[in-house]
């Protein structure tokens, strides 16, 4: 990376830049985008959007005339109903069952998701708080499913004052990943248990420990957090890959020498994601 920066500097010295009008940005026609994350506690919901040309002006992209059918273990079990900009199923997904979506709308190619399941959730066993030179942190222990790669999403809601709540927390590994581990940690809160090499199940959340309020008179108030809800979601591989794909795409911008990754999706003939997850909540009072 250093060298690319170095080379870029060199190129900047010698080169000139211009906008090209001769290259058409290819648009393959509008396609459906399916967004659905489902869990075993709520009715399954799907949002259906449409793609637009890369250089098109923003418009309302929610598709409201689609037919969305939910399959459970290869059998169609529900046609979802459009309400409040979403397609809602009367089904609450079950653990250990296979789900698939098929959607069609006039003017778009029909789309089909891969078959997805809800992963077995890991449970938080203990949360402790500690403080170091960089601030207040929560050390979270959880049960790591052995002999398989599991994916997680960690977050916390912190409470301050009487009824105030804030989402806080920057996830960090307790220690550097072992050499040779292809450990991925995206957007500070999603990771796989490869990071731990099945030896440790500790992760830290940097939570700050207090809410900083800047007053109009120039003074600053520090209100300590008195309670945290720590949420550990066990997410499916598709859930993880979707967000990793978006991150890679964003990171590739600005690096002209690297290949641009294709957009990850598990929706055939379209874009988006259909993925299951389960979660465990741990209430912690410092």
């Amino acid at each position: 990376m250093r060298q690319i920066i170095y080379l870029t500097l060199l190129i900047l010295c010698f080169s000139c830049e211009k906008e090209i009008s001769g290259i058409d940005i290819p648009f393959e026609g509008q396609k459906l985008i399916i967004i659905s994350f489902f869990n075993p506690y709520e009715n399954l919901e799907v949002t259906v959007y449409k793609t637009i040309a890369p250089d098109a002006l923003p418009e309302h992209t929610i598709v409201n005339n689609a037919m969305v059918v939910l399959f459970e273990d290869d059998k169609a079990i529900d046609t979802l109903v459009f309400e409040n900009e979403k397609y809602v199923s009367k089904i609450v997904p079950s653990i250990n069952k296979n789900y698939q979506l098929i959607a069609a709308a006039t003017g778009f190619p029909s789309v089909k998701s891969t078959i997805e399941t809800i992963p077995t959730k890991s449970l938080i066993s203990e949360v402790t708080q500690f403080k170091d030179t960089t601030g207040v942190k929560l050390l979270i222990n959880f049960n790591n499913a052995p002999n398989q790669v599991s994916y997680f999403d960690i977050s916390s809601n912190a409470y301050f004052g009487e009824d105030n709540q804030i989402n806080t927390g920057i996830g960090r590994l307790e220690r550097a990943p072992e050499d040779g581990l292809n450990c991925e940690f995206i957007r500070n809160n999603r990771f796989s248990n490869i990071c731990f090499k099945e030896e440790s199940t500790n992760i830290t959340l940097e939570v700050g420990g207090r809410k900083i309020i800047y007053n109009n008179d120039g003074t600053v108030d520090f209100i300590p957090f008195h309670k945290y809800d720590v949420i550990l979601s066990t997410i499916s591989p598709s859930f993880f890959e979707y967000f990793r794909g978006i991150d890679e795409s964003i990171e590739s911008h600005g690096d002209e020498f690297s290949e641009t990754p294709l957009t990850w999706t598990n929706i055939e003939n379209g874009y988006g994601v259909f993925a299951g997850y389960d979660f465990d909540t741990f209430e912690f009072t410092p």
Binding site: P26, P54, P58, I246
Partner: peptide, 13 residues
């Protein structure tokens, strides 16, 4: 490699 489409609304982003 150039983009073929644009997605306006992205969860979490």
């Amino acid at each position: 490699t150039l983009p073929t489409a644009k997605q306006l609304i992205v969860p979490d982003y």
